[in-house]
Design a protein around this nucleic acid. Structure first.
Lengths: 227, 227
DNA sequence: ATCCTCTATGACCAGTATTCGCATTCTGAA
DNA sequence: TTCAGAATGCGAATACTGGTCATAGAGGAT
């Protein structure tokens, strides 16, 4: 879990960083708004801890830019010395996920961090369905009509892409790039994998979901043929 | 609210005690490590304020004994004149909940006290369970079907993460980051640890909880194989 | 300071699962 | 009909995993 802490007071920053690292988090630091924003945009974090008052750019503005300009939804915990309701409202309106009033104890911060991270995980609605086919992206389990299906890693990747695209057609090149990037295998083994996938998700059931579009690619959809 | 203050410098102790009593707390005092430890063990306190440097037994040792030997989880605020990172880390590792560097203002202390007490009331529900496997994060004890299991620190970290994620799959990279942060060990020793963990939590029992997801990572769940 | 124990790490091997490439057969469109 | 594209099936190559063990290092005890 990577956490970015943006705070201008060195002692506080040091305290927070040390404590969180001790709890097993990877901590990066920024001392002002601009530096923090830059880090937050260029690197992936699981959580941002953000002081309200910062040199360069205040926390609320930073949070707004993050959400609106950069479209980054990393959860944010806002720190502030002030305690007025106004600040809280402004903070939440700017997109902060939680709020902590200074001075706070470090275990208290830890509790909030855990809470926000847990919330983030629970929020993930990673369930894909096409017809009676279901793919739980958390447990990586695939089932059809309640029957558990076992697929290979490549099969899973293919299926994920096809389900996300459903009911649209996916070009062969798109699938090849998905699986191998620029470094394609010598022959077109994509067909083999499509075949294997078909064996698994369609063969045991009477209605096929995975359709071939001749010369173009593949498409995953129910056969009720409503186009 | 009863607070125990352990501090060898009489003026400071007097200051703190007077101030806290004025705020309505019941304050007990100790002048050295041994006396403090004795009081802390024999009587119930809601909070302990503990100087790092004490005659008889230093604060860190005292804190460790309190946590490990006496299994007392009363929150501890550590006081110190020093400010080195080492001290802080050692303090936290010993189980201190917060840290205050001398000289501090009494209102500052009061704020920390309030913060720590508030957090304490929140009540930590630190018990993880997956199937018949239980992990008490307060005492760091792991048991399965009532049988106490002994794991290494790395094993505990792995297990904690896997249990929190259960029944989701956890990627190998996520576990590696959890254990080693940015600079990973040369070879994949993760598998050794998974193996050790498996030996401990699965080998003595007939139903495995720790499953491998080929090419992806690991997953902790019961084998009831539903879905 | 020295020894001792426990843990972490890295290397290796064998067994297994997965992927790839190829040969063959099949299908759909012109 | 003809032919390119598609499906199928299978063996070989590859990647991954579990298990074992030797070594190195940390921490505690003497």
């Amino acid at each position: 879990m990577r956490i970015l802490v943006i705070e201008d007071q060195p002692e506080i920053l040091q305290n927070i960083a040390d404590y969180l690292e001790l709890q097993g988090y990877l901590v990066d630091c920024a001392y002002d708004g601009l530096g923090g924003l830059h880090l937050a945009i260029t690197q992936p974090f699981d959580l941002i801890i953000l002081d309200l008052m910062l040199p360069g750019m205040d926390g609320i503005t930073l949070c707004q830019k993050l959400r609106q300009d950069a479209r980054i939804s990393t959860p944010v915990i806002m720190l502030t010395a002030r305690d007025s309701v106004d600040d809280k409202l402004t903070g939440f309106r700017a997109g902060a996920d939680d709020y902590l009033v200074k001075p706070f104890s470090l275990p208290e911060l830890h509790a909030r961090v855990e809470a926000v991270l847990r919330r983030g995980q629970a929020g993930m609605q990673n369930m894909l369905t096409v017809g009676d086919l279901a793919y739980d992206m958390n447990s990586l389990e695939v089932s059809r009509r309640g029957v558990h299906l076992k697929l290979s890693p490549i099969g899973l990747k293919l299926l994920e892409h096809l389900m996300k695209a459903s009911p649209h057609v996916v070009k062969r090149e798109a699938l090849e790039e998905l699986l191998w990037g620029e470094h394609l295998p010598g022959s077109d083994s994509l067909r083999s994998h499509i075949h294997t996938l078909r064996q698994t998700i369609d063969k045991p059931f009477n209605s096929p979901l995975l359709h071939t579009v001749h010369g173009i690619g593949y498409c995953l959809k129910t056969t009720d043929d409503g186009i």
